[in-house]
Amino acid sequence: MIVGNRKSLEEILELVKPYKKILLLGCRECITVCAAGGEREVGVLASELKIARKKEGGDIEIKEFTLERQCDVEYIDQIKPFIDEYEAVVSMACGAGINYTADCFPKKIVLPAINTTFMGVSTEQGVWSERCQGCGECILHLTGGVCPVARCAKSIFNGPCGGSANGVCEVNKDTDCAWQLIIDRLKGQGKLENYEKIIDIKDWSSARDGGPRTRIREDLRLN
């Protein structure tokens, strides 16, 4: 899933300062699952904003609304009938959803309430951890299913670097060394010979470095 973190209340208050009537827009996809911008978090933020305004003797009108997805026009269309009643939209979707809401309503002020951080997994309830950087050319078959691009601080392909100690990355003692994981995995699978191969220089053109990416399935297109 895409994982994000809500911005601080202080930052959001600054963003909504000029507005008295806002649409607070959550998303039921990944950002709900990572407990950052679903219906519940929309409720909490709305309540916090109202309390903050009341404290200053002011007021704010907030419509709380959570879409199935903010990354699909069919769902975003649901806010069309009433979006104009609000001075601004505060989106609690991931960056993709925030962009798309803004794309669909180019005249509307769309403000981000989420800092989108990574594509990852929930390793235990309340804990999320990065797994993929969307580089566009997967090599997990070479590395025992552990991604050096996303999980090595230096994204090196022929690791580990000299900073791996006791299975931990030199950058952060709470982070596993991806290359230790790769070697352990390959060993467990009896495939340590994979490690012997030098992984060739990567073609980054399929990653973000090649420019913004688009995927098209002609067979699914309507026109």
């Binding site: 022929n158 580990p160 670097c161 000299g162 791996s164 006791n166 352990d184 490690y195 012997e196 030098i198």
Partner: peptide, 17 residues
């Protein structure tokens, strides 16, 4: 090359690469 980095068992193999 760091002979003292972990995992120790592959350090020579890594030099080989």
């Amino acid at each position: 090359e760091n002979p003292f980095g972990d995992p120790f068992e592959i350090r020579a193999m890594r030099l080989g690469k």
